[in-house]
Each structure stands twice: as structure tokens, then as C-alpha cells.
């Protein structure tokens, strides 16, 4: 403060200023708790796993001896699962979102019921989908414990999230764009397909990729539907598989402490996969960001 400020102004609001600062401090410390825990976890994993982060881990086959073990089948299967989830969840999720946002009549009770259901499904624990998948996909329609079944179940897990994210993105497209397109004589389908959908792609892409990175990290439903732990060959769509999170989980349970470090190293790989997906999401969002 300069001396030009009258004393009456400098002295008065001291208490309020202090409260203001106190609140800022409280917020800052909350952020540190959240961020610090994450940073600690990351640092611990990185320090533990770094020495084992080798080419063998990426290209080798699993083994009972930690010094010889790699995770290639698990890494590949995780990438396949991610692709499958993308192939299934994005078209279904986006079309559902379009229906709910652009076509569904909110006055009808069944449309409201669908909406509430989707919101709730997004909060259902993944293991429940695992049980469902085991009963209906693996055994029910007899897909078996194969990559395709895993992909379908993970699709179920993330579908509600994709729908919710896509709806948000579609809702964010201003009505003036729809009106402008309608005014030129476009049909509803043309308005949705050629204006609303392209305009909401950044939001849809971001939401879908974030959902995808969740799917890639899921363990519980995959254990339910038999992502087997020893697989010494590259996975195929209709073949048995193991996924990276399952491999990590299995390694942490091994008696030999060498596997603990291996698990940490594999966790770094998984982290790298998830983070690069998120990076793509951020890139897409920035690349196609629209102003209206």
C-alpha cells in the first residue's frame, strides 16, 4: 500500500481481509491433500517400478520367475479391449444421447425413466457389470471367456458415462445453430447429422476417451469374466486373454517380492497408456474448440 491511502481505508476491513485469506488457505490445503496423495502414490510407484521398466516387460511373456517375466499379452489385450470399447460404446452411446437430447419427448414418462436409469447406471459398481456379463454374455449367449466378451462388458461399464458426456456436448450446441439450419429447409436428421453432431464432436470425443481410460483401468469385472492370468501368446478377438490391470493384481499377490517391483513397473505402463489417452482427449478438445 502506498502512503496516499487514507488511514480510515487501510484500517477498517482488516478482519474481512483476514477471513478472505483464511479461506484461501483452507482451499489451498484441501487441494494439497488431494494432489499430495496422488503425487505421493505416483512417486512411490515410479520409484519402485522404474528399475524394472525394461523392454522385456513390454515384449516378454509372463513367467513364474520375476526376472524373466514380461507383460506383452496383457498390454496387447488391454489395447484390444480399449479398441473394442471404443467401437461399441461410441456409436451406441452417441446415438442414445442424440435420441434423448433431440428426439425424446420429455413429457413421456418412459423417456424420463430412461434418463434417470442412465444417470443411475453410471454409478453402478463395475463388479456388478462383471456378474451380469458372466451370466449373460459369457455363459448366457455363450461368447465364452474371450477378448470380445471382455470388451462387451467394459462397454456396459462405460456406456452410461459416454451417454451422459455426449448429452452434455449435444446440449451445449446453441439452439441458434439448429434454428439456422431448420430455416434453410433442412430436415431434422440433416440438422442433427450435419450441424449438431459435428459441433459437439470435441465434447463427445473428450467424454468418450475419458470413459475409455476408465475401462482400460478396470480390474474387477474382468476378473469376474475370466481374464486369465497366465497367457503366453498374443490375444485374439475370440481367444483367451489377460489384461494389464489383472496382470498387475496377480503380480502383487505373488510370494516373490521381485513381482512387487514388476507390478509397479507394469502400473507405470498402464499409467502411461491412460495418460496418453487423456492427452489425446485434451488435444482433441483444444483442436476443435468452438466459440459461439
Amino acid at each position: 500500500m502506498t502512503t496516499a491511502v487514507p488511514t480510515s481505508l487501510a484500517g477498517g476491513p482488516r478482519r474481512r481481509v483476514w477471513r478472505n485469506r483464511l479461506f484461501q488457505l483452507a482451499m489451498l490445503s484441501c487441494m494439497f491433500v488431494a494432489f499430495g496423495t496422488l503425487a505421493l502414490l505416483l512417486a512411490d510407484t515410479l520409484i519402485t517400478g522404474w528399475p524394472e521398466l525394461s523392454r522385456r516387460l513390454l515384449t516378454g511373456l509372463p513367467s513364474t520367475v520375476p526376472g524373466e517375466a514380461g507383460a506383452r499379452p496383457a498390454i496387447l489385450a488391454t489395447l484390444y479391449l480399449g479398441l473394442l470399447v471404443l467401437v461399441f460404446s461410441v456409436p451406441i452411446g452417441v446415438l442414445t444421447a442424440i435420441y434423448l437430447e433431440e428426439y425424446a419427448n420429455r413429457e413421456r414418462w418412459w423417456n424420463r425413466a430412461i434418463e434417470v436409469n442412465i444417470q443411475n447406471l453410471a454409478a453402478v459398481p463395475a463388479i456388478v457389470y462383471g456378474i451380469l456379463g458372466l451370466a449373460f454374455i459369457v455363459r448366457g449367449i455363450g461368447v465364452g471367456r474371450v477378448v470380445l466378451a471382455g470388451g462387451l462388458i467394459l462397454t456396459l461399464v462405460v456406456l452410461p458415462t459416454v451417454v451422459v458426456a455426449s448429452r452434455e456436448a449435444i446440449r451445449a450446441v446453441p439452439d441458434s445453430i439448429r434454428q439456422g439450419a431448420f430455416a434453410l429447409g433442412a430436415t431434422k436428421w440433416q440438422v442433427v447429422w450435419r450441424q449438431v453432431l459435428p459441433a459437439s464432436i470435441p465434447g463427445i470425443a473428450t467424454g468418450s476417451i475419458l470413459a475409455l481410460s476408465r475401462a482400460v483401468g478396470e480390474t474387477a469385472p474382468l476378473i469376474m469374466v475370466g481374464a486369465i492370468t497366465y497367457v503366453a501368446f498374443n490375444p485374439s478377438l475370440f481367444g483367451p486373454y489377460t489384461a494389464l490391470p489383472v496382470q498387475i493384481y496377480n503380480w502383487t499377490k505373488q510370494p516373490d517380492p521381485g513381482f512387487q517391483t514388476l507390478a509397479a513397473a507394469a502400473a507405470i505402463v498402464l499409467l502411461a497408456i491412460v495418460l496418453s489417452m487423456n492427452a489425446v482427449a485434451i488435444f482433441l478438445r483444444n483442436r476443435y474448440r468452438k466459440q459461439w
Partner: peptide, 25 residues
């Protein structure tokens, strides 16, 4: 361009599905 983006996205997706279709017997 209009919906080139949307179409290209689908093409990539289906291409990948075809690759996965190589099934070991």
C-alpha cells in the same frame, strides 16, 4: 468441411474391427 470428421472417425473404427477379426483357430 461438413461431416468429413464424423465419417473419417467411423472408417477408422471399422478398420480396426476388421483387424481384430483375425481369429486363431
Amino acid at each position: 468441411m461438413k461431416n468429413v470428421l464424423g465419417r473419417r472417425g467411423l472408417a477408422v473404427v471399422f478398420g480396426a474391427a476388421a483387424c481384430l477379426g483375425l481369429v486363431s483357430t
